Simulated assay, not measured.
Amino acid sequence: MLNTTATPYHDAGVLYANTDFSQLNWIELQWASWYLWIGNPVLATGLASFLLHECVYFGRALPWIFIDATPYFRKWKLQPNKIPTASEQWACTKQVLFSHFTVELPVIWLFHPVAEFFGMSTWQVPLPSWVAIAPQVFLFFVFEDMFHYFAHQALHWGPLYKHVHKIHHQYPAPFGLAAEYAHPAEVFILGTGTILGPILYCMFRHDLHIFTVYIWITLRLFQAIDSHSGYDFPWSLQHWLPFWSGAEHHDFHHMAFVNNFSTSFRWCDRLFGTDTKYRAYRARLEAAKKAGMSAEEYARMEIRLNEEAEREGVAAEKKAENSDFAGAWHKTKVQ
């Protein structure tokens, strides 16, 4: 039950002193109730942000664990001969939790004062309309995709790759839980692209609510986990939106080490020519389909092409570990 009588000076109830709760919808009432129940806006925002991240991340990853354990789904597996073991998934989970608590939790905890400093609404109700939310979230997707593209390129530079990004490339056939399996420094670097878009938007527009940021974070986590799932279903989003990257696009990067550095969209890779090897690989698979191969013949050819790409990727990885920045850009672009 919503309590509108709370008035301690640190209590969020003071913030709602002039709010007409009869005009709020159910979600807005729950939003205000959370801040009233916690009593401290900074603590309430920090707890909500961290719990949202953990629940969405592991909640979205769980179905992929079930799918990996079910042979029926293997026909849609991009690298069907590589299924993550229980020990691999547990090791991955421990590293992810380590990064969540050592890097993401402190940042999330400081997010409320930083957000309010730049003019972001947090505890305020009513919440923004979907008409306002949709274009903001789209802008965040575009900004993050571009930021990630260039940051990811930098992480393939020798020292950064050897000491930071190499952890994320431990699995040439990624799986859902591995989306944030990375060195804490990488989590911080790439996470900056996720939160910097909303912060910059706030600085210039001053009309952003953290509720919109939560929707953005939820969709971003779905995108990251799904792109690392290792599965390409007929109903996957990239078959409906050709410019969407998806697992089919990102899986090649893990397998071959080169090409496909963006996250959500294929635009940057196409624009800067960092998808040529990937497109040649896809062309060979499509040609095999059109040649009328049997399912068994096609499966054997796909495994053969995957193994070839992975061997080349191992060689490219060794070069990257010993490259300078200029060389890293050239090699990742043309290989």
Rank of each mutant, 00 (worst) to 15 (best):
V14H: 08
E308I: 07
D207G: 00
G292R: 01
T263L: 12
S294F: 03
M1S: 01
F257Y: 13
N18A: 10
D20T: 09
A154M: 12
E312M: 10
A224G: 07
L241Y: 08
E54D: 14
L127I: 10
M203D: 00
F204A: 01
D269W: 07
R300E: 12
D269N: 07
R60Y: 15
K318M: 08
W267A: 14
T192E: 01
L237F: 11
S245T: 08
L177E: 06
F150I: 09
K318F: 10
V334K: 13
L160C: 08
L208Q: 00
H100Q: 10
I27Y: 13
K290L: 02
Q23R: 14
L200M: 09
Y181I: 06
A134T: 14
Y298F: 12
P41C: 03
S121I: 02
H53I: 14
Y35R: 05
F140P: 00
L15C: 08
R220C: 08
Y161N: 03
K82H: 14
E286T: 15
Y35E: 07
V213T: 08
W76T: 08
A288C: 01
V314S: 05
G273A: 03
E28R: 11
A315Y: 07
H10T: 10
N18P: 00
A179D: 02
P198Q: 03
S33M: 04
V125D: 12
W90G: 03
L43Q: 13
F211I: 14
E286L: 10
F252V: 10
R220A: 05
V42R: 11
T70H: 09
A69C: 13
N25Q: 11
E144S: 01
H250I: 09
N259D: 11
F73A: 05
L52F: 09
G176D: 12
T122A: 15
R304Q: 15
Y171I: 05
D324P: 00
K333Q: 15
K277S: 14
S245F: 00
E54Q: 13
N25W: 11
V56A: 12
A288G: 01
L285A: 04
V103I: 07
L237R: 09
M1G: 03
W157E: 07
E104V: 15
